[in-house]
Amino acid sequence: MKNFKKIALGLIVGALAIGFSAFTNIKTKTNLSERYWTNDGTNYNLVTSYDLDDCTGTNSHLCVVESTDAMIPAQFSNSNPSGYPISGVAGASDAQYVDE
């Protein structure tokens, strides 16, 4: 019974881990209504798709940002990104985007 309790608790924790992982799993799929810009270290450049695995090293700005605003230019400086209604994509960290 004691062992049964331990196994049951272990299974509950396992189920919780899987549930929690499913809930927080980071998606990288592109959405047609969104536009994406990647940080090359100096500017944000418009891209059709991105791969967060290409985010490299550290940078003071987000690696990939997104917006639905059609007025944002294809390229803009990363020194003042707050001038545009952009937000980081899910899972993006402060890094430089290096396309391979």
Partner: peptide, 27 residues
């Protein structure tokens, strides 16, 4: 037992995310 539970949580959490987004992990 509590430490085992923490380790179980970490590994199952990580395993699920690697399988759910397998293409990205392999990439």
């Amino acid at each position: 037992f509590s430490i085992c539970l923490i380790c179980i949580f970490l590994f199952l959490y990580a395993a699920y995310s690697k399988i759910a987004d397998h293409r990205r992990f392999e990439n």
